[in-house]
Design a protein around this nucleic acid. Structure first.
Lengths: 189, 189
DNA sequence: GCAGTGACGGGACTTGCTCCCATCACTGTA
DNA sequence: TACAGTGATGGGAGCAAGTCCCGTCACTGC
């Protein structure tokens, strides 16, 4: 018999999400999460640097976006490069079967200030990563900052729509629509 | 003789900033901050909800921006309303004699992940507040979100320039220039 | 003179998080 | 078959953040 059950990281995430839904983030102890996953506190902190991160670990969106922007055709404008990146990400990190998980995760995050704070930090990282990738393409600094900010907003809107709706959209389509909407709105400011 | 020294909140902020500069945020204990201010841990947590907040408390930028947007002339476009708000804030919350403090504060925040995280949350609050104020003016939701995002970026750039430079600019002027730059950049995306 | 009031001191307690060491199924090698 | 690594986990000591509750005492108004 195997010494340990497989995929401890995933088990911790599932246990945490369940407990946060049942009794709220702040009424849940790291020890309780670990126990439900059949592990201990020590092991929890070997898989995640802190309690909040259990809902944010895994695929780092910032890296994916940076790669996507770098891979965009050279002729693309800044926002077109961002669109290319969002499209790539949709295929890589948001398969349709993860939508239900995404919706539950979003609800838990929205209900807790600490988790919203961590989400805000991830947003900053995403933006910083986009700025960096755009500057590497030769985009002027200020233009890159604006394009990244608009791209991050589009990403946020797309993720909201994708996880909230019960339709059968894929993330890429939602992202394209969101970016188009953001573009239109920015010319109406 | 008075029972307590005056302005305990300010004394705590000053003590915290000094200690963070001397030995770093994470090598500084709440007890140490309180002791340098001539107080105790209990009193610290009566003035601030947590350790991070000691550098973010006080004038809440989100409220000021909301008031500034609401007070803008009715004919103003979304971004003009934002400009009006930034201008008002400059006069109210960023007198020239606070620039040195602002620069020290920024350096400490930049050096620590926890403080950057809190700053990111404040940024979200600022944006949310701007969106709300714009929607109240009848601005469509998506337009409001984009204008708020651009406004928040302008605010950030203005604060960076204002606290970093040794010139004699006032915050309002820096904000106007930043918003104009952001506007130009957004049409180059 | 005298009973509130309210800011502060102080200590007990929970929990997040770190560190260090022991355990033991699995691995490759002789 | 034997045997010394390896590496993920268990477990416990310890520190600091943050909460709670209660006592203290200069100030206040009557």
């Amino acid at each position: 018999m195997a010494r340990w059950q497989p995929d401890p990281t995933r088990r911790l995430v599932v246990a945490a999400l369940e407990l946060f839904e049942e009794r709220g983030y702040e009424n849940t102890t790291v020890i309780e999460i670990a126990e439900r996953a059949g592990l201990t506190k020590s092991t929890f902190f070997r898989h995640f640097p802190d309690k909040r991160e259990v809902l944010f670990g895994g695929e780092t969106m910032a890296d994916l976006v940076a790669k996507g922007i770098a891979a965009a055709p050279e002729s693309a404008t800044p926002l077109e490069a961002v669109a290319h990146a969002l499209d790539t990400i949709g295929r890589a990190a948001f398969p349709p079967d993860r939508r239900a998980f995404g919706a539950r995760r979003q609800a838990v995050i929205a209900a807790n200030p600490e988790l919203r704070e961590r989400e805000a930090l991830k947003g900053l990282r995403l933006t910083a990563s986009m700025i960096d990738a755009l500057v590497r393409r030769g985009v002027p600094d200020l233009t890159a900052r604006v394009a990244a900010e608009l791209g991050a907003l589009a990403w946020k809107i797309a993720y909201e729509r994708w996880s909230d709706t019960s339709g059968d959209d894929e993330f890429g389509a939602a992202a394209r629509r969101a970016l188009r909407d953001v573009r239109e709105a920015s010319s109406a400011c």
